Amino acid sequence: MIMKKFRVFLLWSVIALIIQNGVFLYFEKVYLGGETTVKAEKVEKKKISNMKDINIPSDATDVKMSHDGAYIAFMEDGALKVGDRTKGDIKTVKLEESMEVNYTKWVTDGDFLIIAEKTKYSKSKPYIDIHKYDASRDEKVELTDLDLKKDIINLSSSKDNIEDMAFATSSNVMYFKIGKSSNRADIYKINVMSQLEKVKSNLVGIGAIDIDPVNANLLYEQTNMVKLNTGSKQTKIKNLSEGTIIGHSDNSVFIGKGKADQIEEIIYGDADKSVSEWQNIKLDSKVDKNDIFITAGGRVFIKNSNKSVTDAITKKTVKYEGTLLDINDKGILSNVDGNSKVIDLE
């Protein structure tokens, strides 16, 4: 009897080990797309304001800070640059031959930059190729599915571009809005298995897109309404007549009531529930959507005209210098006389 129990125990231990190794193999070889060495280290918490400054040219565009403030990505003369604030140097990210950057976005829980590259010039079959850049390793890999098929978006015209990108790292699901002619747009999805599919085609009047971080469903603006697409059906956000998508945190969707340049109230909560169950933030005055920053941790900051930002919930105000570029849970990034300046957030 004891030997029988021992054999059963041994069998299940082997099965568990196989499953565990299979998960690690998939994460290493498919999801990360390259060789990975795992090393355990003690991580010291470091204030991002104590890191080195990075030179940011006056003509730099699309300046974005990584979740921990260690890296800053920006475009300069068509080249994608990533500044490493732990070392103080800047690297140029190598692009694929005959390709150019079409869109970039940092993930919210790692030093990874999602890069969408588009074919240059007028090719017979224009397309967009999706990559993941590991800033800490200076490595870029193409996203592929489990069969190692590349995640490529074929375009109907060389004038088509990615106009918006949304993803939740908790689910590893991404959405891409492809802007087309005649105010139309296609929306593509990369699911948790890294499989690419078109979920919406030739939609008219589409504004911003986002993702419900809880259920990984698509959210998008259309004719002043925010709609939720669950795959099987498409519905308006319950009890919301007019709204503007502002962003999402790790567990809530944030929507501004009113038009994009006249937001007086922000509501947030679970997209599957009626907005009557959501929480709300009353703003002191009308605010433009572009002056509102939502962090992954759910903090809401409002840019003021006097070089300061206000936490919309605690009402605490933080001053900054130069030109405001980005805000996340770690800090406030600005450009001061051509150099990065980061203020730590408590």
Rank of each mutant, 00 (worst) to 15 (best):
K286Q: 10
G256E: 04
K227Y: 07
L228S: 03
S182A: 08
D311Y: 02
K149R: 09
N191H: 06
N328I: 08
T235F: 09
G258T: 11
I266C: 05
I209F: 06
V309H: 02
K4Q: 10
K236Q: 13
M65R: 01
K46W: 00
P126R: 09
K52P: 00
D134E: 08
V287T: 10
K307P: 02
V63P: 00
K236M: 07
I152N: 05
D138R: 08
V253G: 00
A166G: 01
Q195F: 03
V8F: 13
E35Q: 07
T104S: 07
G256Q: 03
S249P: 06
K42M: 06
K87A: 10
K42G: 04
I187T: 02
S252M: 07
K81N: 08
K150A: 13
K315I: 03
K286M: 05
S157G: 05
I162L: 02
F24S: 07
V192D: 14
I343Y: 08
K150G: 01
I19H: 10
K47M: 14
T314H: 01
I2T: 10
A79D: 15
T230Q: 09
V107L: 13
L333V: 10
D210H: 13
F167D: 01
S340K: 04
T295L: 08
D138V: 05
S249T: 03
S170K: 11
S194H: 13
E197P: 02
V63H: 02
K341A: 13
K159W: 12
L155I: 09
